[in-house]
């Protein structure tokens, strides 16, 4: 039996999705200036981790993140939920990082965070949504992995996951340590309490650079990308349709169109 368990959760701090995104015209990458918040997709992993540690009767949740300019505001949200500490990687050489660069950095940061029984991620971030980071981290750390988890239990040191599939779900088992990506919406992330928010201010955030992690700057960011954007173009726009204010008879317009399309 595990007596307590340590869970690392990879979290991303992103521009508020309520603000429309934009590309930097110089670099054709997403602009990441302004205040960053905790990606909502990651709040489910944080909640899941806190519940697992609670059930295990000990251990702690450590956050790992990579962000420009030592940004911590999103991390503080997750610390206020109950995570114990964080490792934050910031380095100018990380600008332009793709998913593979990000994974290389996160994998090193996870190792720095200490012995972990389980590493959780979201299935994809809300701003970049490549969805390949969880498996990349697992491969870099040479660990087994289960993606798209809707339920996680630990049974006598064995990981048991209900994994989302096209048809329903699979029950998957794996030894620990392992990497698991958590599907959004499968748990109810707790709201940080006032006490939690106050406590989060003094929780340790280990701020590190690429040099601290022993990563060659030329292997990540723009330098290590191995891909280039050759064109940015306006996509073909849909022709605007008819927009009407419902006057109580709006449904009739729908019925007419359904008939026209021979749906009815």
């Amino acid at each position: 039996m595990l007596l307590g368990m340590n869970v690392v959760v990879c979290v991303k701090q992103i521009p508020d999705p309520a603000d429309p995104g934009a590309l930097d015209p110089q670099t054709n990458t997403l602009k990441r200036d302004g205040k960053l918040i905790l990606d909502e997709s990651d709040s489910y992993g944080v909640e899941m981790a806190l519940q697992l540690v609670d059930t295990a009767g000990g251990g702690e949740v450590t956050l790992v993140s990579m962000a420009p300019n030592g940004e911590v505001s999103g991390l503080r949200t997750a610390l206020a939920m109950g995570a114990a500490k964080a490792v934050l990687v910031s380095d100018d050489a990380l600008a332009g990082s793709d998913a593979l660069s990000t994974s290389k950095v996160l994998a090193k940061a996870i190792q720095r965070a200490g012995e972990a029984d389980l590493i959780l991620t979201a299935t994809e971030s809300s701003d970049g949504y490549t969805g390949v980071v969880p498996e990349q981290i697992a491969e870099l750390l040479q660990l087994p992995s289960v993606t798209f988890a809707k339920e996680i239990t630990i049974d006598g040191g064995t990981l048991k996951v209900q994994r989302q599939t096209e048809a329903g779900y699979d029950e998957v088992e794996s030894p620990l340590p392992a990497v698991v990506s958590v599907t959004a919406g499968v748990v109810e992330p707790r709201y940080p309490s006032f006490k939690g928010i106050m406590a989060a201010k003094s929780k340790p955030v280990d701020q590190v650079t690429l040099a601290d992690l022993g990563i060659d700057p030329s292997s990540v960011g723009w330098a290590g990308g191995g891909q280039e954007i050759i064109e940015v173009a306006q996509a073909e726009a849909r022709a605007g349709g008819t927009i009407i204010e419902d006057d109580g008879e709006g449904f009739q317009k729908v019925v007419d169109l359904l008939a026209e399309l021979k749906v009815i």
């Binding site: 949504y129 490549t130 969805g131 498996e135 990349q136 697992a138 491969e139 096209e166």
Partner: peptide, 24 residues
């Protein structure tokens, strides 16, 4: 395909051959 299996294979393969994935 951007499927459960496709994403798993792409992520692991990208590390194995140290090459990026172009997604979506």
């Amino acid at each position: 395909a951007t499927s459960y299996t496709g994403r798993d294979v792409a992520g692991r393969l990208s590390v194995k051959i140290d090459a990026p994935v172009i997604t979506n």
